[in-house]
């Protein structure tokens, strides 16, 4: 591997040009992944759009294309728009909590922990790679009316057995707690990566110029880590706003989310048209979010290498 080096550097530019020419065309390389996404990702979403206006339907119908469901949904008469805002509130809460939990950890790992940082990072990430459903289930055992916390509360005589702490399970609180639990490991990563890539000399320069550590943090480190925070925020917000599994297991009636409504419209109510309107609306919301935060999510910034 060491022999060709001199030649290569001597006429590198020429070699590179040749290199580019002789490879199968960019199009040839790019078409398999692009085709896959067009066929199995973009076209399905277009078909969802067709369902949302009744151009396609689950059962044969005489009704033609109609924007009625869209109008109904967007006019605010629909009960689902209220549910959407409720879910937005819940997802925002989850995202804020998760970033607040993950930031100090990312900061610690990137700037303070020293040599063992990758091992410590791995320790945080591993739970994310284990069964999602099971991690949700674990909280049922902890938070149930006769679960660990309530058993302890009753044993300590703080409450009697017939009046355990009810909001622990089947509530918005439960959904928020469990979702935060599930997403923290995932979010520690982008925050870590941004902080890790900070130019340390700037921090030291700030220190040398007499800035206190707090001042350095708020005026230098934090602003520079904002892209990572933004990416983290979006990466939690998007999946949680479309969440339906966790609410269905621990949310009860009050933790019911927009995603549950979508899922039910497809599997229970068989109202695919309304379901498609709700789904597509979610896609639009995501697109708007990405238009705002998109610069945080680029190939390089989120790289986990």
């Amino acid at each position: 591997m060491s022999t060709g080096q001199a030649t290569a550097s001597s006429n590198g530019r020429e070699a590179r040009r040749r290199h580019l020419r002789t490879w199968p065309g960019t199009v040839g390389l790019l078409s398999p992944p692009l085709l896959w996404l067009i066929l199995f990702f973009l076209i399905p979403i277009v078909i969802v759009a067709a369902y949302s206006v009744g151009a396609l339907s689950l059962f044969p119908t005489t009704q033609g294309v109609s924007f009625f469901d869209w109008k109904h949904f967007l006019s605010g008469d629909s009960i689902y728009i209220g549910l959407f805002w409720k879910s937005v509130r819940m997802s925002l809460t989850v995202s804020v909590i998760v970033v607040l939990l993950a930031y100090p950890v990312g900061y610690f790992l990137a700037l303070v922990s020293g040599k063992r940082k990758y091992v410590l990072l791995l320790l945080i990430i591993v739970p994310f790679l284990t069964s999602y459903l099971l991690r949700v289930l674990a909280w049922k055992v902890i938070l149930g009316s006769e679960g660990i916390i309530n058993t302890a509360v009753v044993t300590l005589g703080l409450r009697d057995a017939d009046h355990p702490v009810q909001w622990l399970i089947y509530s918005q609180f439960t959904v928020i707690l469990v979702l935060a639990y599930v997403w923290v490991p995932f979010v520690a990563l982008p925050i870590f990566v941004t902080l890790e890539n900070l130019d340390r000399s700037i921090l030291e320069a700030a220190g040398d110029l007499g800035a206190s550590r707090w001042r350095t943090f708020w005026r230098v480190t934090f602003p520079m880590s904002l892209p990572g925070v933004g990416a983290a925020f979006v990466f939690v917000f998007i999946p949680t706003i479309g969440e339906f599994v966790t609410p269905s297991l621990v949310g009860g009636t009050s933790g019911f989310m927009y995603g549950n409504a979508i899922s039910d419209l497809f599997t229970q109510g068989l109202d695919w048209q309304t379901g498609s309107v709700l789904s597509l609306f979610l896609v639009v919301v995501v697109l708007v979010l990405m238009a705002i935060f998109g610069r945080f999510v680029q190939v390089r910034s989120a790289g986990a290498g």
Binding site: L34, L56, P239, I241, E243, L280
Partner: peptide
């Protein structure tokens, strides 16, 4: 644009994507 498309599945709620695939297969 291409890299945006390649990364876009990152931000689709899986619920919506699952349903979209279901609808694709139905169609």
């Amino acid at each position: 644009a291409v890299s945006g498309l390649l990364l876009s599945p990152l931000v689709i709620p899986y619920l919506v994507f699952g349903i979209a695939l279901l609808i694709l297969f139905r169609a």
